[in-house]
């Protein structure tokens, strides 16, 4: 009883603070939603450096872009497509809860930092991965090792080519080349600290990954790129095969247990005599 109340209280606090953070200021919004892909004056991550962004495009275009990048991209806008190509074809993400007003505030915030000479440069030191990290990362990915803060294992939504059998989840994208796509260790580590997509934010803002877990996962993803295992078509075939097999077994068991469900009394009696 007591613990369930406690849990409820904790959940409530997390919920409130998460909400406060989300709506608080443009800076907070930037930290949660933008930082995984962008820097201001820190050089390119997955997306372009945002220093002096307003010199490259006018404010109206930028607001439209931030508000609904997919729509601008789909409209065939040349500049938008150029960004898309430059970013390893990782599309700009629509941030959850974004509005025109917030977009304008974000641009103000970026302008402010730009005038201050950009973010303080963080010297990035690429971590050294051990083989132990790789195997640990694999365990985290597949869920055989639990994340400290109870985040769900990657495999429930994602897959990588090297997973045998039925493969992983197919709800999210295939993560085999994610290490490359999201800007190697620097980009990926920022991404994993606070995954910004609409699906992942609500989950990982409450259950963030810790430092060690991120390193293990990165080691695992890096290894995936190096090994370059081919996509396993077999896993799709297996999936169908197991499905058919399971169905057959299910129905045969069903048929065996309830074998006489349609057996009447009178008809067999009459048949027996003729």
């Amino acid at each position: 009883m007591n613990s369930s109340y406690k849990n409820l209280l904790i959940a409530l606090i997390i919920f409130l603070t998460a909400n406060l953070m989300a709506v608080d200021t443009a800076e907070n919004f930037y930290q949660i939603n933008c930082k995984a892909c962008h820097t201001i004056g820190g050089g390119r991550l997955i997306g372009p450096d945002l220093m002096d962004v307003e010199t490259r495009k006018d404010r109206e275009w930028l607001i439209n872009w931030i508000e609904d990048p997919a729509a601008v991209l789909a409209s065939g806008d040349a500049y938008a497509n150029k960004i898309f190509e430059e970013s390893n074809k990782v599309p700009m993400i629509k941030s959850p809860g974004i509005t025109k007003e917030i977009a304008a505030e974000l641009l103000d915030y970026i302008a402010k930092i730009t005038s201050e000479g950009g973010e303080k440069e963080v010297v990035w030191e690429a971590p050294k991965f051990t083989t132990e990290d790789i195997s640990k990362g694999r365990s985290y990915f597949s869920g055989s090792l639990k994340f400290e803060n109870d985040a769900p294992p990657c495999v429930s939504c994602h897959t990588v080519n090297s997973i045998p059998g039925l493969g992983g989840g197919r709800l999210g994208v295939n993560l085999t080349d994610v290490y490359q796509r999201l800007g190697e260790s620097r980009g990926l580590s920022i991404w994993l600290k606070a995954p910004p997509t609409a699906t992942m934010v609500p989950i990982f803002s409450k259950h963030p990954l810790n430092e060690q877990e991120i390193i293990s996962l990165m080691a695992f993803f890096k290894n995936e790129v190096e090994v370059q295992s081919r996509p396993q078509f077999a896993s799709v075939a297996n999936f169908i095969l197991y499905g058919i097999l399971g169905t057959i077994i299910f129905f045969s068991v069903f048929g065996a247990i309830w074998a006489n469900r349609f057996k009447a009394v009178r008809r067999p009696m009459v048949k027996g005599i003729r």
């Binding site: 309830w258 469900r261 009447a264 009394v265 009178r266």
Partner: peptide, 8 residues
């Protein structure tokens, strides 16, 4: 399964 069918 232990019920009379319509035929019964």
């Amino acid at each position: 399964p232990h019920m009379p069918t319509m035929d019964d």
